[in-house]
Structures are given as structure tokens and as C-alpha cells.
Simulated scan of single mutants.
Amino acid sequence: MDSLLDFLLTEPVPTAPLDDVTAAWTRHRVAANRFDGPVDVAIAGGFGADRLGFAFLSGYQAALRTLIPELSADELVAMCATEESGGHPSAIHTVLAERDGAWLVNDTKSFVTMGVFAQRLLVIASVGTAPDGRNRLRATMVDAREAGVRVTNNPALAFAPEIPHASVRLTVVRARVLPGDGYLDYLKPFRTIEDIHVLAATMGWLMRVARVSGWSRAGRQRLLTVLAAVRGLDIDAPNSPGVHIALGGTFELFDEVLAELNPLWESTDLTTRQWWERDRPLLATAGRVRGQRLVAAWRSVLPESDRPDSP
């Protein structure tokens, strides 16, 4: 097996441009064959990407395979949770019901990353309301090629427009129900797992930029330092307060290093620099929710008297 850090410093940089999601996914799978752990696969996939959006693809797909390790290595997968009212557990109205021994899902998911390219859908659905009023969620796997699946592309986002998003209408579609609670075992941990893997893929991509652009040894060293911090997070405990706190610190370090390296972008080719400025907002899309998780994590480990909001 390759040493990931040596790989980033010495591996020949792929120079062929990536024209679309299919090309990016093909290159990602080459990287996936070199490394075992999903975080390392995300990093190597990001290194192979020629822009941040395709690095995100690597991070997103690797994150799903941390969540569900048995997923096929060859298929693009999409998380389907967000609906018209949002992605909060109480806003999920997609119905999962059993009929004649088969589980079926019905309703519409409004924002599905990967859109028409997804071959397998991880659909979060409701089986009704618990006695305490909580929406009872289950996770299911759906084949996107089923007759009852209709995918409609959403307009491209202003950042990372190469990554498609879509609404998905599910009409009496057969589903395989996964074990566990749809929120506690899938939706909730995925938010943290995705943050870690997307940051990992971003670091891989930035190492590619540093290599191609001839950034200083000090700059590359700083990038590897952040990358080592990302790899050190306990990915097997995504609901742990300690992981959320360490992840918060890692993002702070990431922001500091980005600020330090900002002058080096002048040596980067114009197209890559323009893509970076266009796509940087992608890294902030989950910032508010991540901040809320960080506050909650500190509250859970501090004595009440030490909490900032204590009287």
C-alpha cells in the first residue's frame, strides 16, 4: 500500500482535464484502488481532481462509504433526505410502507446531489410518528433505475456548477430497508462524516495545486499538517463530542493556513485561480450547522458552571 503523504508529495499529477462527472468518477476510482480507508481515498481522489467541485465528488462518495461500507465501489450514490420543508428530521414526509411483503417509498426529495448520475439512492423516509411525537425515520436503498423514480435536474449552483443537483420523485418504488434508526444511525452522523471527507478531499486538491503551481516547501508542509489533522479524527465515532470539537479546531487551522497561503495563488494559472474563487463558497455551506454542533458538543462535556450561557 502507498504511503498517502509520500503519494501527495511525489505522485505524478494527472494533467488531462476532466470534462464531466463521469470522467471525474473514473479518475476517483483509480485513486480508490490505491488506498483502503475512505478518508485516504477522499484525499487521493481530491488530488486527482482538476477543480474543487470534482474534489467534492470524491469526498462525498467516500463519506457515503464510511456510512455504509458495503456500498458498491463502482456506483455513484446519493443521499436523499432534504425535502421542500428542509432536511430536519421533522421535515421529512417521504413515506415508507410495507405492502404485500415489499417495502415501498413515496414522495419527493427536493435537493439530491449527483442528480441524474446517481445509480443508487440512500433515501431517508418516515414510518410514522412515535408516541412522543418524534418522526420515526428509516434509511432505505433504492435503485435509481426503477420505473417509479423520476429525476429532474435543478438549476446549476453559482459555485461548483459541474456537480449536478436534482429533485427526485419516488412513486411506489421498491426499497431495501437498512438496519437501525434513520436519523441516529444515518442522517445525523452523515453530516459530520461528510464534513470530514470533503475537507480531506479539499486538502488533496490543494496539494495538487501546490505541486502544479510550484508553491514553497513551507506552504506544502502547512497543507500536510492540516491533512494530518483531518486523518487523525476518529471517523468511527462521528457523534462523539470530542470529534466535533476536534473537527472545529481543524477547520480553524484550515482557515488560518488558507490565509497564510493566499499570496501564493498569484503563481497559479488563471483558470484554476478563477475556479477557486468561484467555488470557495462550497466549503462554507455547512458552516452554520457545524457551528451549532460544536456549541452542543462543548455543552455536553463542560460542567454546567463552566458553560458560556450559565448564569
Rank of each mutant, 00 (worst) to 15 (best):
M207N: 12
I235D: 13
V230Y: 09
R217Y: 02
V230C: 09
V230N: 11
V212P: 01
L227H: 03
L223R: 06
S240A: 13
A218F: 10
V243K: 00
V209D: 05
T225K: 06
S240V: 05
L223W: 06
A210H: 03
V212Y: 00
I235L: 14
I235E: 15
R211M: 09
L224E: 11
V230I: 15
A246L: 10
G219K: 08
R208L: 11
I245V: 11
N239E: 14
S240Q: 07
S240Y: 05
R217L: 07
V230T: 12
A210D: 04
R220K: 15
R208D: 12
V243W: 01
V243I: 08
V243T: 12
A246H: 11
V230L: 11
W215L: 01
S216Y: 00
A246K: 09
N239D: 14
A246N: 10
L233S: 09
A237V: 09
Q221H: 14
A237I: 10
V226G: 02
A218C: 03
A237P: 11
V243E: 00
A246E: 13
N239T: 15
A246Y: 03
P238M: 06
I245S: 02
R211F: 02
G214H: 03
V230M: 08
S216E: 00
S213Q: 02
L223C: 07
G219Y: 07
D236P: 07
S213P: 01
M207A: 11
M207G: 04
S216D: 00
A237E: 15
R222A: 14
D234C: 09
R220P: 08
G214K: 02
I245K: 01
G232K: 05
R231Y: 12
G242W: 08
S213F: 01
R231H: 12
G219M: 05
D236K: 13
A228N: 08
G214R: 02
A237T: 15
V230D: 07
